[in-house]
Amino acid sequence: MAIEQSTQSSNLVDVLETVLDKGVVIAGDIRVGIADVELLSIKIRLIVASVDKAKEIGMDWWETDPYLNSKAANKEDEKLKEENDQLQKRIDALEKKMAQDNRLV
């Protein structure tokens, strides 16, 4: 049987239900009506699940898509820069080689 500390692993709906619905109510000056706790739990569960699920089935393309993720964008930039440097080096080498070839003629 699971005996759990409420801080660590209380399930979502319990925490929501107790803090949003229970607890002492003494009229504060600012009031908020909170939507149905069950519906809220389901929504949160779906959000959490959809992120996990997406990762699981490899649908995490947005993490590497430069339009959606700045980290990915930086990576893309670095890659381009590296490619650029390499191409530049090859051109330099080719030009040098051509110059040498020309001298021989």
């Binding site: 607890g23 002492v24 109510v25 003494i26 504060g28 000056d29 600012i30 909170i34």
Partner: peptide
Amino acid sequence: IIPMKFSTIYSGYES
């Protein structure tokens, strides 16, 4: 502790 419900907010000290 007497736990309050989430979002019990007062406009200021006097209140």
